[in-house]
Computed example of a mutant assay.
Amino acid sequence: MTMYFLACPYGHEDRDTVMYRFDECTKAAAKIFQSGRAVYSQITMSHPVNEVIQENQLGENIVWPRLTRRSWKSVMNSLCWN
């Protein structure tokens, strides 16, 4: 099975722009899923977590590059082969 990685702009100083980008990215991911393809949408998955972190003043957004370097291969293997 092929897994598509959906990359979209996300970060911005204007919160409305961030929300718009999240919504559009998530809509695109949904269309890809509905077409029968597997997709990994990092923004769709991380935005809700970032919202909780910010609401609870626990720190800054998730640092995906660090997490991705450490776990991307494992995550993708899990998503693609299990």
Rank of each mutant, 00 (worst) to 15 (best):
T68S: 11
P9Y: 13
S41N: 02
N61Q: 14
M45T: 08
K73Y: 09
M45V: 13
M19N: 09
E51D: 05
N82K: 13
K27E: 03
G59L: 13
G36P: 01
A29Q: 03
A7T: 03
N61S: 09
W64R: 01
N61R: 10
A30T: 14
W64S: 02
G36H: 13
F22A: 01
M1H: 13
H12D: 12
P9F: 13
Q34S: 11
K31D: 13
A30G: 05
V49S: 04
Q54E: 07
K73C: 09
H12S: 14
S35R: 04
A29V: 08
E60V: 02
E55D: 13
K73G: 05
N82F: 10
W72N: 06
S35G: 11
T44Y: 00
G11M: 12
I53G: 02
Q34L: 09
I62P: 01
Y4C: 04
R70T: 12
M19G: 06
M19I: 08
F33Y: 15
P48Y: 11
A30D: 07
S41H: 00
S46I: 06
S46E: 12
G59F: 15
N77Y: 08
T17F: 13
S71I: 03
E60S: 14
I43N: 00
A7Q: 08
V75F: 06
R37Q: 07
I62F: 02
F5Q: 03
C25L: 04
F5H: 07
P48N: 06
R15H: 08
T2K: 14
Q54H: 07
E60P: 11
A30K: 15
S78F: 15
Y20T: 06
F5D: 00
P65Y: 15
Y20D: 14
V75R: 02
S71V: 03
F5T: 06
R15F: 05
H12K: 04
R70V: 06
A30L: 14
P65G: 01
V18Q: 01
L79I: 11
C8H: 04
R66E: 11
C25D: 01
I53W: 03
F5M: 07
Y10A: 00
E24Q: 12
M19R: 15
